[in-house]
Amino acid sequence: MELTATTTIRRPARDVYAFWRRLENLPTFMCHLDEVRVTGERTSHWTASAPFDRTVEWDAEITDEVPEEFVGWRSTGDADVPNAGRVRFAPAPDGVSMEVHVVLVYDIPGGPLGKAVARYFGEEPHQQLDDDLRRLKQVLETGEVVRSDGAPWGKRARKEFPQRPAQPLSAEEVEELAKEARA
């Protein structure tokens, strides 16, 4: 399965590239990622959880990159869901913004895990990546993922519909949010 998405961010190439290249940042806006741990100059360890009903982990390596232009990566070893990705940064015609073009490729296995993955991505799998890039844009342009009372959970927004009512959070919910922020 191949997913593509694109967005335009009003920040210089240097900043957008640097943010993405610090792979630990990816889980702050990518819905399915729990953690990315950098293990070497080009290697990293990725953890994805909730969506698959179980934790999926894999090692990845940067396959090629040109600073401020693109980064390519792919999973290594025998990953449960072999995958690869590529992000390309291109100056927008306005002279101040950067276009971000992302391609993710998943090699969906057979069996129950494959089914779970397919179910997770749903009928319009690209939407998830669209939302991820919207959050990336929020973080880079405004400093953080935007929260509302109806959708306070950041990455979980689309999954929860109907949402909680658009009224302030209870003390317990505020505590839960603080816990997530600390994690």
Binding site: D131, K137, E141, V146, S148, A157, F161
Partner: peptide
């Protein structure tokens, strides 16, 4: 472009 956390639904 940034203030609506439900932008995906609005879109």
């Amino acid at each position: 472009e940034n203030s609506n956390p439900n932008a995906g639904i609005a879109e």
